[in-house]
Every structure is written in structure tokens, then in C-alpha cells.
Design a protein around this nucleic acid. Structure first.
Lengths: 154, 154, 154, 154
DNA sequence: TTTT
DNA sequence: TTTT
């Protein structure tokens, strides 16, 4: 099927320092936990209530991974956009388990830093953008969208 | 934490007729399975590849439930917008399990019908949903967003 | 026509203190100018280029207006979501002119504060939420979306 | 400024056959008019009201232009995502004028066909767009987002 | 389990 | 100028 849209957008805080791993292919992947919260006043008791939702985010693409490595730490507030993906795996007893994650890939993911050390609340890509070469055109063409991402050399 | 955003948007096809249940409170809930797909040409083999992702959607609010009941069936193409939520439950062995769903609620969810029987591809809310009264203002105010309403009394 | 979507999302900086006006109806309206920027490296010269886009935002609904009044000033970084609207007007010579604005209304608009004085980067609605009454249900129901908005009494 | 987001999403109907022009550079550009509508019941009179909003959309990138050329006509229902841009121009009297448009570029734009002749309601990119080579990776990586590609060589 |  |  074509003609489908699968998009998740979060603004939230990173719950722990990102975990960055290398795949056998040499590619690196970053894993993030992001919290979003809602608060409301309970209709019956009048009390303030709050509920936090935790999201697993998986980031592919060396450009995005480098941004995360350089600028994202526990407590960072970020905007991310990616796609929902449910992964099937087997637990120790061999039973099927499913995990749903938000996946960011180079041409299907955005990350904007909304807080952080030394960046004054600006975007992660605020620093060095792309550096010409094959990737430059992509960054350049994507730039007008106001997106920050894999623009640090990758 | 306030200041967070938790938004999912899908355009896809409904995989089975919606399941509608009544809660003890009398409220009704609709459950949907929505498929989104991606297709691409394999770089090495040149073959066309396709991958389908299945999403569980839970809809609260009698207005939205009525739209689903009336217009959404297996095969319908719809747009939905809601929030990600991971629910914890126990399997038969008492082990913790988690399921991630997209939750639509009256003031935090949209549904647009993009195909369907007898609606000529228009939105579910195409008909006059609201009927004045207390809810009318909400519908009226939300209407400009092009959203499908839960304006049927709920 | 039903079945349409008209949604704009911005993360940017406010260019000047908001202008808040009262309509004859007694309702208040806030006007904001928001800047978004893109930067990229010029393919031919290798120079870094930057382009800023300015957006006119019009906010209805006393709840959202109060948040803006209380927390948004020149330089604030905010997320907003609303609908595109083009307004026709006549210039001094009587010629038709058009202005495109992003319109936020109570049930069709979101505002999240991403920086600001004394709010530690959290959402504008982070403080006092709704206070019961007719609006409470709406705020309460919308809260789960992680949206901040008109939750200060309105 | 980095760290900004400038995103517009529409689902609506195309008001006239697209206009496709060639620039001096040889690149082609497509212009579209898209209608979105809202309908609501008037609180005081109880009458159904409807308001249509017209949007100007400008599409760069030969891939997206080819999809439009092949599949989009007057009356098509489509989803588009792009960035807001206000262009300054001079009228015949030399006075400054401004036009706000939604701009889609290869790496910052999506288009999904939601109706159309012969495509059964599927996406414009339903066919295998990419053809291996340098662009293939991009298409492949973006594909998961459910986006229509500009993967036809451009 | 949808759709093309 | 679309669509229901």
C-alpha cells in the first residue's frame, strides 16, 4: 500500500543519557527515552493530577547520531519527529513480545534541541551545518523546512 | 512536566471492522487496527520491497465512536491524530507486559474519512454533527481546523 | 466540504512583545510575530547561509490570550499549532489585499512555552490549570494530549 | 536561528489543474490551489455554515512535479506537507506586496494522493519511484515515513 | 488484518 | 477554483 502517513511528534525531556551503539555494519544507532506529561485538575477532587508517558526513540543515521552524541543528555528538552514501528522479539521463554518505538532515519526524522548546555535553547544543528559533498544537497534542500538534523557532517 | 507534545498522525487503511465496547461507566470505546505501508526499491537487488506497519488505535468519546460506528469499516482509508500511550498489563503468568496504542479523546483526537461507502471520499464529520447546545460552541470553535468532530453529544 | 485538514506548526522565536486587543464583543485577541529560520551551506561558495521567515499569528480565546499575556515576550521561544487563514482587506486606495495568518482558537490551537522567564523551559500551562466549571471538562479531556493552552481559567 | 520548525499540513481538494512551469535553470515548478473547509452549526440560528479556505502551494523538485503532472488534477483530494513562505513582490504601481505560499521541496515536502483517476485512492508514490543509484538510498530511507517520494530522478 |  |  502506498499513500500512507506514519508520523509521531514529541516535545519532551530526555530521561537518561542516550545510549549509542555500533551495528555490525558499522552504522551507529542512538536510543533515547523521552518523557511527555499531561496535567489536569481532577473534576471530583479538584486536585491537580499529572501523568507521564515514556517513549522509546531509536535514531539511525550518523548525522543525527552525532547531534545526539554532542548535544543531548539526560534532562535535555527536545522536539523529535519520526515514524512508529513495532518490533517483534522473543523473551527468554521463547514467547513473542512486541515493542513499539519511534524511529528516526536520515530522511525521515527530525530533531530540534530546545534546551541544552551552551546552545542557548537553539537547535542542535545550529552549529556546523553540512560540509559539501554528496550529502550537502540533501541538507541544503531540507534546510528550508526549518529542520535540524543530520546537518553536522555524516 | 508541562510543555510537552505527544502527537501521532496516521493515514492508512483499517484492517478489520472496528470493535466497539461499552465500559462500566456507560461510555463506549472503539478499537481500530490501522495499516500504514512503505515501499522502496532494494538497492542491491533492484526489487520492489514493501513493509506494512500495524497500529492499535483506541477511541474515547461518544461523538468519535459514533462516527466510527457509522462510517468506518474494514478497508476504510482514514486520517487519525491522537496521542501515544503505553499500557501495562499482566499476562497469564503474571508477567508485566506493555502495549502501545494511539489514543483519541474528544478534545485530543481527530478523524477524517478519506474513503468509504456512500461518503464519496469526504470526511466523517461531513454531515452536521453538532446539534447546538453546550457542545456546539466547541464544535464551532474547533471546526476551523478541518477536524472531524465529536460534536455528536457525548 | 468536510474531510479536510488545515494545520500549521511552528517552533520559533517571538519577534516583539505580543499585541493584545479587545474586540467589541469583549473578547480579546493576541497578535504575535514568530520567526523561523533555516540555515545551510551554499553549495557553490561553501558559505553558511541563513534565511528567516516571519509569521503572523492571531490568537483567540481568553485562556490562550492570558497565557500569552503572562508568559510570552519578545524573544520567547514557543511552539504553536493552528490553522492557516487568508484575510481580505482593502488598502487606502481601495484595492484588495490579502494577508495570511495562523489562527489559534480555543479548540483548535496549541501553545507550548519552550523558554521564558521563571518557567524553566516548561509549558505555559504548567501553572494553574483549569478551575472547574464548564470549561473544566474540556481542559481535563484535552490534557492527555500533552497540550498546554487555555488551561488557565478562561 | 536554528532550532525552528515550519510545517504546514493540508488535506483538501485541488481547485484547478496544476500549473507546471519551467524555470530558466531547467527545473520545473508546479503550482496548486488547494481548498480546505470547515463546517459548523451556527449557535444562534441553528443553520449549518461552511467556510472554505484556499491555499497556494508551490512544488519544487522534478520528482514531486512528475507525480503531480501524472496524478493530480482539478478535484483531486491530496495530503501535502511543506513549509510556509511569504514572498515579496511589487505590483504594477511599484508598491510592495506579499504572498504567502506553502512550499514543498524534495527533502522538505510530502504529497499523498487520496483520490484520483485509476489509482484507487492510493498514494502517488505507489509505483516504484526510485531507480537505484544515488537517490535510491534516500528514497529507501524516507520510505518508512509513508511519504511520497521525489525519487524519480531530479 | 488493510491497501495498491 | 475544489469538495460534500
Amino acid at each position: 500500500m502506498a499513500g500512507s502517513l506514519n508520523k509521531v511528534q514529541l516535545i519532551g525531556n530526555v530521561g537518561a543519557d542516550p545510549e549509542i551503539k555500533s551495528l555490525n555494519s558499522g552504522d551507529r544507532v542512538a536510543n533515547l527515552r523521552i518523557a511527555t506529561s499531561e496535567s489536569w485538575k481532577d473534576k471530583s477532587t479538584g486536585e491537580k493530577r499529572e501523568k507521564t508517558e515514556w517513549h522509546s526513540v531509536v535514531v539511525f543515521g550518523d548525522g543525527l547520531v552525532k547531534v545526539i552524541e554532542s548535544y543531548v543528555t539526560k534532562g535535555s528538552k527536545i522536539y523529535i519527529s519520526g515514524a512508529l514501528q513495532t518490533r517483534k522479539w522473543q523473551d527468554q521463554s521463547g514467547a513473542d513480545r512486541y515493542s513499539t518505538e519511534i524511529v528516526l532515519k536520515p530522511f525521515n526524522g527530525e530533531l530540534i534541541l530546545l534546551s541544552g548546555r551552551g546552545d542557548g535553547g537553539s537547535g542542535a544543528g545550529g552549529g556546523g551545518q553540512d560540509q559539501g559533498g554528496g550529502q550537502a544537497a540533501q541538507t541544503q534542500q531540507r534546510a528550508p523546512a526549518g529542520e535540524i538534523d543530520d546537518s553536522i557532517p555524516f
